[in-house]
Design a protein around this nucleic acid. Structure first.
Lengths: 336, 336
DNA sequence: TTGTAAGCGTTATCAT
DNA sequence: ATGATAACGCTTACAA
């Protein structure tokens, strides 16, 4: 480890006291209590000697680490790009505000608790959590909050009293379905997984006076089953059930891609015979035979919001959940 | 901020000295110099009072932060999942070794230098960098190393003297091409971007005594052009050039997906008429009409290796670049 | 085995 | 405007 320049080194070199140097270099820009001339000399010396502030010492003294913990469960289907979107969003905002990121992943519930214990080692000012799935984890988080560490979550829906940066999930289903209706579809199938989006789908049909047909709704119970294969399987069912359809609302782009592939295999044309829309606006939307329309959950924006709100909380403000509006991303698969 | 229990609190509660408590709680498991009984009491009290070690104070004292910096340029095409694979690989290994991660992204060269300056604030023991593209950045890194902060990179090829966890890139091209040859292809096209993989492609053709045809090689000069559209465009060219072909080695899964889509549109059958293989083994391999064979660069393994080697370097060992061997992932698109 | 003392680099308080 | 002094919580020598 080479020369690690400290305040002391500069103070000695200039024959001034350490606090003087500290005030000039690290106390933002309010150079109160230091003459302009001394300040200039100090700044110059610091530059020349290559001073870089020791964050650790400052943190120990002030109790502020300028670091936020990020605890996430790899999110969405692998390949959806949601985790990456979340991280880059958080990273952008933290960089803007001169904050650092301490990252930790977890998978199951056991890992969650261990990860939480580790990351909560008094080196962060607050915590962003993505992927809290059950109230048991939420309890652990509430305890952390009670201990003085602010927490903001970025997840589908709020758990407990933790402020969550969320999307209007019902609107997701409604938006997608309404879009297909506007494009002229009158019989719309749905590949589902979560209840809210399904409700939105039902809302849209109802509002348009279209019937809801059981045979045109296919659901998978487990997260892991949100994949291309199940999109294909769902579409096979739709084709076999005898009820004609001209649109598919898939609540995941993976489902949608599977549906598209199956339809084309069967000689149908997308979007002319059947229009399709997915959810997530993931990179795979551009990988198929026809570019896939989708509903964006605007993860990067929510991530940035999470950082801002967390810093507010660190500053002592009370923060609450925020619900964002999903956005339509129209491409060829929906005939737009 | 609620009760923050310190060594002092425990020491006072038990009428022992602070160092005693420190030895028992934080000095791993070598409880030398402390009676079994005292140790037991201390551990019990710590548990009861909810002690959690103040990493910041320990770091200030010891100079060891148990934290590694991760500085990455979002990697590969968006959606390739490489960034996520890299991060989860690093995270797994660091978790195993009780290390923490400080994360920072950068995009252009300017951001690189700013990010490097920020992350190098004496709160990390070493640095993993992914995405160094030019020697100018490498110089900055070498300076950091000279200042005492070990650096390990995870990139396509080593830059300067920085130890790099890399893949045998020539082997990537060779492996993919040989696989198609083994599957019976005798006229293989190539959608290229990097020189090494192209060389591997040429090697394989040569070894098999197959001719190299200019018309069956299509390349894009810029990274950003590694996408599905250019895969389609390349395939159009191949189809139009008049030279028959029965295989395509695409050096990216995106290229490969574009090729697959185009071939099927033209009424050709994959893999019967044309076999295809990509590179990256990304999630999109499973999104098309036919599951895509690919060559895996084994990013997670290289990420874990990077952590291990970096910690070795932190411990004072000299570390050198390591070259991993790519692995074939056979799926239907190559007839395997 | 146990306790005392010093110090990591910074910031905050209080004299001067 | 400036400087002396203490303190953040922990670890390491060294003395008892």
């Amino acid at each position: 480890m080479a020369a690690m320049v400290t305040l002391k080194d500069i103070a000695e070199a200039l024959n001034v006291s350490i606090p003087q140097v500290s005030k000039v270099l690290n106390h933002s820009h309010s150079t109160v209590g230091v003459s302009a001339e001394t300040a200039r000399r100090i700044r110059q010396a610091a530059e020349a000697m290559g001073y870089v502030r020791n964050r650790t010492a400052a943190a120990l003294r002030t109790g502020r680490h300028n670091t936020i913990g990020v605890l996430i469960q790899p999110w969405g289907a692998v390949g959806s790009g949601l985790t990456e979107a979340l991280l880059t969003g958080i990273a952008e905002e933290t960089a803007l505000r001169d904050q650092h990121i301490e990252l930790r992943f977890y998978r199951g519930q056991d890992e969650f608790h261990r990860a939480l214990a580790r990351i909560n080692g008094a080196a962060i000012d607050g915590l962003i959590v993505a992927g809290v799935r059950n109230s048991e984890c939420a309890d652990a988080l509430e305890r952390v909050v009670a201990d003085g560490l602010p927490v903001v979550t970025v997840h589908i829906e709020a758990v407990g009293t933790l402020p969550n940066m969320q999307c209007n999930e019902r609107e997701v289903g409604r938006l997608a379905t309404e879009h297909l209706i506007e494009q002229g579809c009158t019989s719309i199938a749905h590949i589902r997984f979560t209840p809210r989006r399904y409700e939105g789908y039902v809302d849209a049909l109802r509002n348009a006076g279209l019937p809801l047909r059981e045979a045109l709704v296919y659901g998978t119970p487990h997260r892991l089953e949100v994949n291309v294969e199940n999109g294909q399987r769902a579409t096979e069912r739709f084709l076999a059930c005898g009820v004609a359809f001209d649109g598919i609302v898939a609540e995941s782009d993976f489902f949608a891609m599977g549906a598209m592939v199956k339809l084309i295999q069967e000689g149908l044309c997308v979007p002319d015979d059947v229009k399709i829309i997915g959810v997530d606006d993931s990179p795979i939307c551009l990988c198929g035979p026809v570019p896939l329309s989708s509903v964006s959950l605007d993860v990067p924006a929510r991530a940035r919001l999470a950082v801002r709100k967390l810093l507010d909380a660190v500053a002592g403000e009370a923060v609450q959940s925020i619900t964002c509006t999903p956005a339509l991303v129209v491409r060829r698969s929906s005939g737009g």
